[in-house]
Design a protein around this nucleic acid. Structure first.
Lengths: 210, 210, 210, 210
DNA sequence: CATGAATGAGTGTTCATTCAT
DNA sequence: GATGAATGAACACTCATTCAT
């Protein structure tokens, strides 16, 4: 009598609140397996154990679902990565390792490499999304790299020219290796963590003080 | 006059022989512009100035066309790259530059980055193709890198440990930058040649003799 | 306090009783604006400030709502019109004017032209409704016209042949003009009242005593 | 050998040329029976004995099909009607009769009343079509009426005030009766031709010289 | 009783593929 | 061989209707 939202209401409500992320999770799994275009919304629905129409209560279109997934999964991580870079003041090699580990965790463990893959191959159809991804993900990543390099120069870990290094060169192996593992064989190759450690070593050698 | 292959016939014959590569050229151009899934076979036909049905005279399906294009465009180039690497015996930095320039030419100017993009995001639909691409393109590229590194070590340009370097780390920036330019903005960033020159410098610093 | 129908109850009761007509009112407004097929039940619910499911407490289906709206809105008016015609004994031109004004008020101001529009274009889906509309609305209207004409002949206002006039000819302009204004431009044309006055004049000239 | 389009080609060509009008014919029949919204494109295809996709070779959308049907069926007729009115110089009553017969033939026999019905009830979804219908059909019809009335005044058949008569009053019965017959019973009522003859008589009485 | 989350049948549209000419 | 008209399976999206709360 006193409670206008009794126990009964809550179960459905709890479900409703969880739906969007359940749908996103199902979608990302399938996109990772089959690609964006090749995944039917009906499959996503089945993966989330709901009916096709239910998706449309939460996302107005397939593209919007992609956008929401992107938003939901990445922003937080990139912020975290940047905070880490700015807050932490250890040796440059350690900052780079931390940065790469963050990227690896997000892209590989968190499954965010789908976004990169989809944007790379179907990006022409979603110019707005590409623009947002650049703004939110790529440029933040590049800023982080620049900050790390600048800090390294300031600290004396790196040579002054390191500040002018194209940040994509620093990020590329982390990105590429994440993609690599989703399609190509990695047999006979170092695991991603070791490879990134090698990358740090090369960078420190190539950019560091002689 | 009784000649069964008169002048007219020959022209047609020449035309007919050229068809497959004309179709492939048209397809690659469009795939590069719009992506594989978003390009209709009808557009490819129009680009090749033939009728839609004619494509099926030469390729049994859209996927087969993709496969043929991949086969046709890449093998030669990769062979060239390897030959170049093996045949040439200059300083390591020069060999790396040459190798990257070859990759860049092929992927960017030749438009082969489509293959990488498609395979990366829709590879699961083409397991055989992925396997072949790995065998023919990726592993050859990695062999080339290993050969260059080994030659560098032998020459004394590189430290012995360079021979154990994951070849993907060497290739990744060249691959990633090729993909980058097909979707993302490059404004405010060095052009690809300069970036690869930086990459060579970093590698030489990171892997080279102190 | 022990009263089983206290003040609060009553208000709710009054509310509940009013629901059907509130729903009908909301529906007719939207049907008039967008047409029957293009109006979603959800919009009707929103217009009536209730939840979608609540409509089903009162009407078992969308078609049933249409039927109920038809029933509710028209019978009364047509009865009124007939009463007016039969009760009043003025000059024929005045009776016709009054009749047309009644039709105009109902169809245009009251929004009942939707029924005519829907029945005209989707009537085949509602054979029962069409039959009822004919019985209740059209044939009553025609009776009224016949009564007016007969009275006019009896009075000496009209020529005897007027009694044989197809009543649809008398009603058609009033009906058509009501429909016209719901879709087509009326710019540069007389307003409906003036037009109907012209119509009365023509009828009186064409059917009246020379 | 001399004929680049031999017999074989022709059969298909003849078919192709006929397709659009076959599709339109099938569509109009079904729209007349069931209304526009309630008729699936698949039904139209079945009615034209073709596959659903074939419709899209000739019309880019359902709406475009409606538009094409409208264009195809009506313009010619309305032009004919206007030519008739302008070219013919007989008594006004005869011109009116001719005009109404043209309208009747087109709307009833030619099935064009569908357009009116669809526009009346679903016109809100097609503002462009409504505008075109007004421009092409309605305003031409009204011009024709005005021309007939003006000619009648000039001839001395009609009183001067007839020139100011709202042309919709003249057309309304012809339009309304066409619609009437598609949904409502006409039992016990004069057939359309007789009714329109009565209408002409009334108009001549109401607008004509005393 | 009221709610609105969930459903799923239904429809317009696309496009790889076929095949009569 | 070459053509392009025809096909029909497939898919995104809508919305009347249901039902757990």
């Amino acid at each position: 009598m006193q409670d206008p939202t009794p126990q009964g209401e809550k179960k459905r409500q709890r479900r409703k609140d969880a739906r969007p992320s359940e749908i996103i999770a199902a979608a990302m799994q399938l996109w990772a397996e089959r690609g964006f275009a090749a995944t039917r919304l009906e499959d996503v629905a089945a993966g989330a154990h709901i009916a096709k129409g239910t998706i449309y209560r939460y996302f107005p279109s397939k593209e919007a679902l992609f956008e929401a997934a992107l938003q939901a999964r990445i922003v937080a991580t990139m912020d975290r990565a940047r905070d880490m870079a700015q807050g932490f003041d250890g040796p440059t090699s350690q900052m780079l390792s931390g940065f790469f580990e963050t990227i690896r965790t997000e892209l590989v463990d968190g499954g965010s490499s789908v976004f990169l893959r989809v944007l790379l191959s179907e990006g022409h159809r979603f110019p707005d999304l590409v623009a947002r991804y650049e703004r939110v993900v790529l440029s933040r990543g590049m800023s982080t790299v620049r900050a790390i390099l600048a800090a390294g120069v300031a600290r004396g870990d790196l040579r002054p020219e390191a500040a002018d290094c194209d940040p994509r060169l620093v990020m590329a192996p982390a990105m590429m290796l994440s993609l690599w593992g989703t399609v190509f064989t990695t047999e006979g190759l170092p695991d991603m963590r070791s490879a990134l450690a090698q990358h740090v070593a090369i960078l420190m050698g190539g950019l560091g003080r002689r």
